[in-house]
Amino acid sequence: MNISYNGQALTLSQPQSLLEVIEAQGAKAPFAVALNGLFVPRSTLAEQRLQEGDSIELLSPIQGG
């Protein structure tokens, strides 16, 4: 299964949840997640099953004006 993770192509050997992929990628708190442009609350990351072509964005705090 081919997906996108923060703009990088990623191939999954088996179906996984959003939480499993994030943990496998070594994400460090604090962060928030969007799937295909829609916010996914932290409490539901484990329930979200990924599909072919999904796009994950994992964002963390940065400087802002």
């Binding site: 994400a27 962060f31 994992l58 964002l59 963390s60 705090p61 940065i62 400087q63 802002g64 004006g65």
Partner: peptide, 20 residues
């Protein structure tokens, strides 16, 4: 003021957030 960016970008992450 602060913002959010991809975690794999140069400076996004917990270190900055701890400073704030």
């Amino acid at each position: 003021t602060v913002s959010l960016r991809r975690q794999n970008s140069v400076s996004a992450g917990g270190d900055f957030w701890q400073l704030i």
